[in-house]
Amino acid sequence: MPSAAIDDYLKAIYHHTEWQTAPITPSQLAGVLGLAPSTVTEMVQKLAAQDLVSHRPYGPVTLTDAGRLRAASIIRRHRLIETWLVREFGYAWDEVHDEAEVLEHSISDRLLEGISERLGHPRFDPHGDAIPDAAGEVERVPFVLLGEARIGHAGRVLRVSDRDPELLRALEEAGIDVGHTLTVTGRDAVAIDDSPTVTLPQGAAEAVWLTA
């Protein structure tokens, strides 16, 4: 199996439980990857044979220790590259994901570690996602999804999903970025730091995570 294909599956499984605890099902995995369920089922069986995932028929898919380490390694590459592109080349945070998807499979380990050293071994990427260290470990703090935070909750923006570039641009225009403090003032409204209340862009409540 092509290494890139294996990495894409492992990344998708890893991502699913980064910001919530329910394991991913084969049908959810198929939706994330845009593939037919039968294709995903066949691939999951191959990954299980390589001891990269654990799966029972009709059950969820979880990473084994070996699978988690490999997933963390490719995610480390992706997020270091995103950080590098933003800091060194002036990319906007809505422009880096697709570039990193290509570069993560092509740069050498030596270059990757050189990038990490030049950047000061960052712990988080431009979207607030934790960058695993060389051992696959990450730093986490208690969090809450913006859409699940109660009115009156105030928290620092930990992470913004990078799946929708248009939403990232809308959040930037609204002044919502990693590190800012948001106070939930209504179902679709927040106050940013000490600024007046702003209306959330559509989809923001499911794409922003705050400190709990």
Rank of each mutant, 00 (worst) to 15 (best):
A4Y: 15
Y9K: 12
K11N: 02
A12C: 09
A12V: 05
Y14M: 09
E18K: 14
Q28W: 07
M43I: 10
K46D: 07
L47G: 01
A48P: 07
A48V: 09
A48T: 13
Q50L: 14
Q50D: 05
D51Y: 15
D51Q: 15
G59H: 06
G59K: 03
P60V: 01
T62R: 11
T64P: 04
D65W: 06
S73R: 12
H78R: 15
E82Y: 05
E88S: 07
G90V: 00
V96Y: 00
A100R: 00
E101I: 13
V102C: 15
E104S: 12
S106Y: 10
I107Y: 04
S108T: 15
L111Q: 04
E113F: 14
G114A: 08
G114D: 08
E117H: 10
E117Q: 11
R118Q: 08
L119R: 03
F124V: 05
D125A: 14
D125K: 00
H127P: 01
A130N: 03
A134L: 14
V138E: 00
E139R: 10
R140H: 04
V141C: 09
V144T: 14
L145K: 04
L145W: 07
E148A: 15
V157C: 04
R159A: 07
R159P: 09
P165Q: 06
L167E: 02
R169Q: 15
G179R: 03
T181I: 14
T185W: 08
R187F: 15
D193V: 04
P201S: 06
G203R: 07
G203S: 13
E206S: 15
A207R: 12
A212H: 14
